[in-house]
């Protein structure tokens, strides 16, 4: 009974982390489709992220319920719940950006597309590394550091790409309203990398706590 519950929870946690990884890939794919003006495909990416976000929410709630009702991992429960909630924000962030693209249909000149995809790539790799770190935290906490420094690296890279695009945009001939509109999207995409960094910071502390 005890081990059956444990196996189920391990599986759910794995599924949850898979969803986070997948949602970032779908987010990057959606962005590419947007720039290629494949409206239908882009909407299908948005729907896919939406489904993934709902699944992640359901899984998170189920794991949280099990942890509390079965009084499992009493010492690390708070940390694992904090981890789940913060990782859930990564899917929400990915969905939020795609939804804003879908609603506001921002005009982004073609010369910025490559840099936007680079920004999405840096944020996505940060998220992927933090997912790896979370997996390691659950079974081999001492090796978490390997991934954490990569998360910080990609967050800095995302910041620098975001700044570069903003500088270019605000020195262009675009209308101020368009510049502000583009800036809004840059900030939202960069925020994804910041969210990954927040999770990494938490993981660093949880790891120290588990090693004491």
């Amino acid at each position: 009974m005890m081990f059956k519950e444990t196996k189920l929870l391990e599986k759910q946690m794995d599924n949850f982390l898979d969803i986070i990884s997948e949602s970032v890939l779908v987010f990057q794919e959606g962005l590419r489709r947007y720039f290629k003006k494949q409206a239908d495909d882009f909407e299908s990416s948005l729907n896919k992220v939406d489904v993934l976000e709902n699944r992640a929410d359901d899984l998170r709630r189920d794991i949280e319920n099990r942890l509390y009702t079965e009084t499992l991992i009493p010492e690390s429960r708070g940390d694992v719940l904090g981890l789940l909630e913060n990782m859930d924000k990564l899917v929400n962030g990915a969905k939020h950006v795609l939804k804003e693209f879908s609603i506001e249909i921002p005009f982004i000149p073609v010369e910025y597309h490559e840099e936007f995809l680079e920004l999405a790539n840096a944020a996505g790799r940060g998220v992927e590394e933090v997912v790896q770190a979370a997996r390691r935290f659950l079974s081999d906490p001492l090796s978490v550091k390997t991934n954490l420094h990569k998360v910080y690296h990609y967050e800095e890279e995302a910041d620098s790409i975001a700044e570069k695009i903003k500088r270019k945009v605000f020195r262009s001939e675009l209308e101020l309203a368009q510049k502000n509109h583009i800036r809004h999207f840059i900030i939202n995409m960069d925020a994804l990398a910041d969210k990954a960094e927040d999770v990494a910071d938490r993981l660093a502390i949880y790891t120290i706590k588990r090693s004491i």
Binding site: M2, F3, E10, L72, S76, F137, L138, S139, L142
Partner: peptide, 17 residues
């Protein structure tokens, strides 16, 4: 623990037992 890399949930079950 370092050698076997036991999952947090499984470690919890082993500890209970």
């Amino acid at each position: 623990k370092l050698l076997l890399k036991i999952h947090l949930f499984r470690l919890d079950a082993y500890t209970r037992l």
